[in-house]
Design a protein around this nucleic acid. Structure first.
Lengths: 251, 251
DNA sequence: AAAACGTTTTCCATTTTATGGAAAATGCGA
DNA sequence: TCGCATTTTCCATAAAATGGAAAACGTTTT
């Protein structure tokens, strides 16, 4: 396997995880690469526009060229194009933020968002990853995957605790997934530790496989449990509509 | 400069521009690389998770792993966080899509978007790049940059024509930028060739430098020239509010 | 069924290219 | 001004990328 390519992406990942610029020596240390090599690879990336170097501090950050590739990915899942109109309509009905996420490598990845008009403050960035077991989006996808896959995910990622309500054992998770299948939609009860509640439902492609999920989320005050049934039904209807437009036919 | 790294990104860009998976031979042809080399590079990327290969068709697409590389946006993150609430309010006032873009390497890059509820169909994807001279967003940023920078941009990127109204000569551009400074906002009159009209205004950081711009855009039918003054004023007010929140103080 | 074709994948001798240690240049703070 | 930390340059060496060709695979045609 191309060594330089592998090393290049190692550097890019380090830059991608940092929330400020990193210098050559720092990167060399973190990547365990020699300084000379690190510098040369960064220089190549800089010339190509994939990293930028601050004139003053000489530190490196990822370049905006990456935004292009990121956008392309989301675009290629023509899932987003199909889902957006439905999500927009759902948002207008319930007046809360609607998210679309897919499952990837045992985690969920946020793909699209339609923000509720009264929502303010923190918003989930497109491209953000989150654990599956502690989000309504993740749980609703897990609920319709094979038991083997669920086991694999748990083995690979574990069940880390983020709040008192987080599910941290496999039997608990299995029971929760069963409940979700019966109910048809998943609930999030502050398992992430944030003051937010979510209701989520699965999206299927033409083969019937669950490939994504959509959710309604909002601050705890507005997302009262008394609205669960109403919101759950709304999110299910929207998810089914998206599935149908992807070619899924429910018998 | 690392040849294999350069070639790798060439392949990635090709995959990003395609709107469906591409095979080894197609990619080899488009990149002018030998098939063996192409295959090996793709295989490396596949192992790293940056491209995915369809089991059935063997075609390659960009992998979701790219969504990890978010550092790029960190610099723009604060900007986006500050701008979003203002953009949302602006969208609600005018009921059309609002965009946020920055200037990078002589082009504009779309950073955020708040979609108008009545908007449908094609939308500008986040991360997309576009020429500065043919968009209201680009022109409004150019208008407040030094003449030297404008000349550099024209030299580097040229003034390609996309429609009969595109500005294609430097004097024309200079005159247009002057008009924008007088007016306070920029207009787009189908210079890109799309049936869309835009109104854009510049955003400044605490140093007073123009670092971004926001725009209102919609289909020609709804964005009638008679609304220019009203929309221009609205977009200016929003841009100034964002600037103020970034620490810019106007004397 | 077999053959012909287009693709993907593997292989390997060749040589280009990356490598990394060290030294030079630069920047920064005392 | 000096000294430390960091970035940048350099170059002989070694390793990795290269690419042409053949093999494997899958699909369509005869």
């Amino acid at each position: 396997m191309s060594n330089s390519v592998k090393r290049t992406f190692m550097l890019l990942e380090l830059l991608g995880n940092a929330d400020q610029g990193l210098g050559v020596s720092t990167l060399a240390q973190q990547s365990q690469l020699p300084v000379g090599t690190t510098h040369r690879l960064l220089n190549t990336l800089k010339q190509l526009g994939y990293v930028e170097q601050d004139r003053e501090t000489h530190k490196y950050t990822l370049g905006l060229r990456f935004l292009n590739l990121r956008g392309a990915i989301i675009n290629q899942l023509n899932l987003a194009a199909v889902a957006m109109p439905v999500m927009k309509e759902l948002m207008q009905r319930v007046n809360e933020t609607v998210h679309l996420a897919v499952f990837n490598e045992g985690e969920i990845v946020y793909i699209e968002r339609v923000e509720g008009l009264q929502t303010q403050g923190m918003y989930t960035r497109i491209g953000k990853r989150a654990p599956a077991h502690s989000t309504a989006l993740g749980k609703t996808m897990l609920a319709y995957m094979s038991e083997a896959v669920v086991h694999q995910v748990v083995e690979r990622r574990g069940l880390p605790r983020f709040s008192p309500t987080t599910i941290t054992t496999l039997p608990e998770l299995v029971r929760e997934l069963e409940a979700i299948r019966l109910r048809g939609y998943a609930l999030d009860n502050g398992e992430t530790g944030e003051p937010v509640r979510c209701v989520a439902a699965p999206v299927r492609d033409y083969t019937g496989q669950v490939i994504a999920a959509i959710s309604i989320s909002g601050p705890k005050e507005r997302m009262h449990p008394s609205r669960d049934a109403e919101l759950g039904e709304a999110v299910c209807r929207a998810a089914k509509l998206i599935s149908a437009r992807l070619g899924y036919f429910q018998y």
